[in-house]
Amino acid sequence: MQASAETLTFLRDVRVFELFSGPDLAVVTGRLRERDLRRHQILFREGDRGDEMFIVRRGTMLISKAVTGKVEQVLVRVEPFDFFGEMSLFDGSPRSATAQAETDVELLILGRDSMQAMTETAPHAAAAFFYAMVQVFMERLRRSTLQVAEATRWGLEATGLDVEGR
C-alpha cells in the first residue's frame, strides 16, 4: 500500500504511533493492509487463530464474548483511531472474543511479520510502539476491573441480595 498522506495524517492520531518520526511512520504505513467490512459482518470469532491487530479508520466495531447460547456480552465498542486484536499479535493465541462491525467499517491491519520487521529496522519506533502499548494494556486492565465490579453490582441488584445485612 502506498503511504498516502491521508493515512499518514490518520496514523499520527493513533495512540501507538503518536511518538513515531515521519520516516518511521511512513515505513509502518507502507506495511499496513486495508480491509472493509459491511454492517454486522464478523471479522473473527472467539477461538479463531490470529496474528494481526486492527486499527479502526472509519465506523464502529463491537467486541463481544459468548455468554450462553446465542447471547454474547458486548465488552467494548472500538471507535476510529482505536485498535483491537493486539493480544494475538504478540502471542499468537486464539482470539479471546468475537469482533464484528456495528456499522460499515474501514480497518487498517498490522501483521506480526510487520511488527517484527519494525523491531529490527526501526528499534526506536518499536520502543515507542511497545511503550504506548503497555499504557493501553494498563488502561484496559483497569476497565476490565471496573467491568467485573459492574457485573457484580448487576447481580446484586437483580437478585436483591441483602449482603450488608448478613
Binding site: 464478523i42 446465542k70 447471547v71 464484528q100 448487576w154
Partner: peptide
C-alpha cells in the same frame, strides 16, 4: 447497572 448483550439470529451474521 446495565449489560449490553448481543443476541445472534439463526444462520446469519445478523444480530
Amino acid at each position: 447497572a446495565k449489560f449490553e448483550l448481543l443476541v445472534r439470529r439463526d444462520d446469519s451474521d445478523e444480530f
